[in-house]
């Protein structure tokens, strides 16, 4: 049955031969966007809980640790390096692509370390998860965000590994763009969370 391809591979959408690879690209991107919609709702729910809870009488201001600015700088730069990686991929320069995606993964890891440093510095100042509502939200929001960013780092490492194994074909493979969409989203999510944490309550 030559009309049916990739039914057995299963990961990607099974399409008839009449469908083009741009269809498949469209499907994968749409799937990612819909998934990001779900993540958006998760953080929207956290935000509304944050706003409701900040109306409580025991709400206490929290001095955000300055190391968060380093986190922010790292994540912004990492989005730029990932765009460099994508450009290299488009130009079929796989060596350069590997370097840029490795650099992005390193910056992402740096972000996670920097976030952890922020937790430690709060702990040193005697602020813990259960200290007061704002600190609770701080640890929960940064923690859940870090878990999502960690997934992005794993995706970047997988990308690097696929490129090293010669499994990524410029002009055909859409994985770099999918990873980039997710990465920019999670980066943007951090900027949003920082704005919530510093401007609201």
């Amino acid at each position: 049955m030559s009309k049916v391809n990739s039914l057995t591979s299963g990961i990607a959408a099974p399409l008839d031969a009449a469908r083009s690879s741009s269809d498949r690209r469209h499907i994968n991107r749409l799937g990612l966007l819909v998934g990001l919609g779900g993540i958006t709702m998760l953080f929207a729910a956290f935000t509304s809980a944050y706003i409701v809870r900040s109306g409580g009488g025991d709400w206490t201001a929290l001095e955000l640790p300055p190391v968060l600015w380093m986190s922010t700088a790292l994540i912004v730069v990492s989005s730029l390096t990932l765009e460099m990686a994508r450009r290299a991929f488009r130009d079929r320069n796989l060596a350069s692509f590997r370097s840029w995606s490795a650099a992005t993964a390193a910056l992402g890891t740096g972000f996670l370390v920097s976030q952890y440093a922020a937790w430690l510095s709060l702990n040193e100042a005697g602020v813990y998860l259960q200290s007061h509502p704002k600190s609770s939200f701080f640890f929960v929001l940064t923690g859940v965000h870090a878990a999502h960013l960690l997934a992005g780092v794993v995706a970047l490492l997988a990308l690097f590994g696929l490129a090293a194994a010669g499994r990524l074909v410029p002009g055909r493979s859409d994985a770099p763009t999918l990873t980039a969409i997710y990465w920019h989203f999670v980066g943007g999510l951090w900027i949003y969370l920082l704005a919530v944490l510093s401007l609201l309550g």
């Binding site: 919609g37 779900g38 993540i39 709702m41 998760l42 929207a44 809980a49 609770s136 929960v140």
Partner: peptide, 16 residues
């Protein structure tokens, strides 16, 4: 997709 994440958020906060 739009509603279950709210339960996930609530369940996480409840666990804490």
């Amino acid at each position: 997709l739009l509603s279950f994440p709210a339960l996930a958020a609530g369940a996480l906060l409840l666990t804490f």
